[in-house]
């Protein structure tokens, strides 16, 4: 028994060590650093919660928080809707389903940086496919989509929805596969049509899977960075700036280590709230089953 326990600890130790050194300890440091003014130009000084006061009063920072929240809410909502649609399609039996499933996986597999480059080019004001679709050969009307506030915001959200809906689709597909076929049979015998079957059987039984996909996607949406870096760098006028990009700007190019840490703690707290809800949901699911 004792030797089993020793072996268990020895086997887990390397993993715990790596995670502790490269994930847990840096998080603790971020919390501590957020209480200091830490720039290359002045000595490191303890300033309490001043960084957080700036974070919630500075207009650039609050604008960034606002767009981050818009981004998280709109993109996750769309991803769940489109993911549900995709999941319903790839759940059906048809010839070539494997290939269609592979196609659906492609956006998930493509590096986010490449997805950003692709969409930047799709939206290009000279050679973009989107302009070709809207204005055809009327090149004088071609629009610089990423140059104005709302279309740039929509572009970032759209690119994220394209990239990550397939992940939501897979989680929902797993939920669909767990619904027993005979439920549908019974409903069919009772004369329920497809629409009724969807709202009375599919949707209620999918609720846990949809919730899981929603929370996973939300946590990830708070971490959006690469799309913003590649497509807009926060422009025009900071309208597409998001917290992770803002924190990066402060911490690295501007070398405001303490303030940047405060930004990162805010992202951490936002995600922690979503994660807590997620863990609670998953737990109740285990107890139910």
């Amino acid at each position: 028994m004792n030797s089993e326990r020793k072996a268990a600890y020895a086997l887990v130790a390397p993993a715990v060590f790596i995670v502790a050194v490269f994930v847990l300890s840096p998080i603790v440091q971020a919390f501590i650093n957020s209480l200091y003014r830490d720039t290359p130009f002045s000595p490191k000084t303890f300033i309490g919660l001043d960084n957080y006061r700036t974070l919630f009063s500075d207009s650039v920072a609050t604008g960034t928080i606002e767009f981050t929240l818009i981004f998280v809410i709109v993109s996750t909502a769309l991803e769940i809707l489109i993911g549900l649609g995709l999941a319903l399609v790839i759940h059906e039996h048809f010839k070539g389903r494997g290939l269609v499933r592979a196609a659906v996986l492609i956006p998930w597999a493509i590096p986010t940086v490449v997805a950003g480059v692709m969409w930047k080019y799709m939206l290009n004001d000279q050679y973009g496919f989107v302009n070709l679709v809207f204005y055809g050969s009327n090149v004088a009307n071609y629009v610089a989509w990423l140059a104005s506030e709302w279309s740039a915001r929509m572009a970032i959200i759209g690119a994220d929805v394209w990239k990550t809906s397939s992940f939501a689709a897979l989680l929902i597909l797993a939920g669909l596969q767990s619904i027993p076929e005979d439920l549908y049979e019974a409903a069919r015998i009772d004369g329920a049509n497809a629409v009724k079957r969807f709202f009375r059987i599919t949707l209620p039984l999918l609720k846990p899977a949809i919730l899981l996909a929603l929370l996973f996607r939300m946590m990830d949406a708070f971490r959006v960075f690469a799309l913003v870096y590649v497509m807009t760098q926060g422009a025009p006028g900071g309208s597409t700036n998001v917290l992770q990009y803002y924190g990066y700007q402060k911490m690295f190019p501007e070398q405001q280590f303490g303030y940047g840490s405060a930004v990162s703690v805010l992202v951490f707290v936002m995600i922690a709230i979503v994660a807590t809800i997620l863990i609670r949901t998953v737990r109740t699911r285990i107890y139910e089953s």
Binding site: V16, V23, I27, A30, R223, L243, Y248, M251, S264, V267
Partner: peptide, 16 residues
């Protein structure tokens, strides 16, 4: 703990 680690934002880790 290991699972929680996967949820942390990269920005909060990268400084350390």
């Amino acid at each position: 703990l290991v699972l929680a680690a996967s949820m942390f934002p990269q920005i909060a880790i990268v400084g350390g």
